[in-house]
Each structure stands twice: as C-alpha cells, then as structure tokens.
C-alpha cells in the first residue's frame, strides 16, 4: 500500500500504520524500550517531517510522475524474484540452535539492561552518533538556508 497508492499523503499514512505494526512486534518480543523509541522517532519525528515536506511541496495525484508500463513491469518482476530467492534460501537454513532457547533472559529489552549495555559496551559509538547528528543538523541548516540569497 505504501508503494501502490498514487497520492503521496496516502503513502505516508500507510507507512505510519506499518510503523505501528512493527512497534507492536517489538512489544511482542518483550523489547519495550525499542517499541517506545520506535514510535517516538518514526511516528513522531520522521513521519511528521515527511508530511510536512509533502504539504510544503503541495503534492497530490496530479503532480505524481508516472513510469512507463514496461519499467513498472520490470520493477515488479525484479522485486518478486528477489523475494522468491530470499524466501527459498531462508527456507533451508537450520535454526534449531536459536529456536531451542527457552528465553531465560526475557528482560533484556527493558530500559535498565539496555542502558547498562549502551553506556558501558557501546559508549564510544553512542558519542560518535551524537557527532553524526550534529553534522546532520549543520548540513540541513546549510541546505535549507540557500534560498535566502
């Protein structure tokens, strides 16, 4: 539905539904922290950004560019073939060693345990990602400011 609807706003709304479904999967996996972060970051921030840009650019079905039928056909075939190959290869793998676990540590998704790992084992990547964010902020401001001149 995200890729099939003609109107970009409908695509965004379907994408929000998909994100909430994925958040539900995180809750089912007992990863509450990830579910909360996922909803806040994706549904809260990224989707608002998408909607904002789409409405700023005033997009609707009339402005939607169209591909030729041949290209659409080729894209569908290529995507379907990729799905077929991946599913066929995953069908044969042996996962009994993983599936055999009896989930002895079902609480790893909680904030306390994730914080222990994040701020001890992964402290340097955490700080590096903050620098990445700083660079992204500066880049976005520079890109968006060009119209002033």
């Amino acid at each position: 539905m995200v890729i099939a609807s003609k109107n970009p706003i409908h695509s965004v709304l379907y994408l929000i539904i998909t994100f909430f479904a994925i958040a539900g999967h995180y809750i089912m996996l007992n990863a509450q922290f990830l579910a909360a972060v996922h909803i806040i970051v994706y549904a809260g921030a990224i989707m608002v950004l998408f909607l904002f840009v789409i409405m700023l650019l005033n997009m609707n079905e009339e402005t939607e560019p169209h591909k030729s039928t041949l290209l659409k056909f080729a894209g569908t075939i290529a995507g379907g073939l990729l799905l077929l190959v991946l599913v066929a290869s995953f069908k044969n793998i042996n996962l009994t060693s993983i599936s055999g676990n009896d989930f002895a540590r079902a609480d790893i998704g909680l904030v306390k345990n994730l914080g222990q790992v994040l701020f001890k084992q992964f402290l340097l990547p955490f700080e590096v990602s903050s620098i990445l964010f700083l660079a992204a902020i500066v880049g976005v401001v520079v890109l968006a400011k060009k119209e002033a001149q």
């Binding site: 996996l29 599936s99 676990n101 790893i108 998704g109 994730l114 994040l118 990602s129």
Partner: peptide
C-alpha cells in the same frame, strides 16, 4: 531476543539514529 543478547537491540537503536539523520 532469541539469542538473549542485548547488543542487537543497541544496534537497532543506532540504526534508528542513522535513519533519522
């Protein structure tokens, strides 16, 4: 979750950060 290893969820967190940027 199936491995019982929290590092994977931290990686998910980092992927979300990179995706947002």
């Amino acid at each position: 979750v199936f491995h019982g290893d929290a590092a994977g969820q931290v990686f998910v967190f980092f992927i979300m950060i990179v995706a947002a940027a």
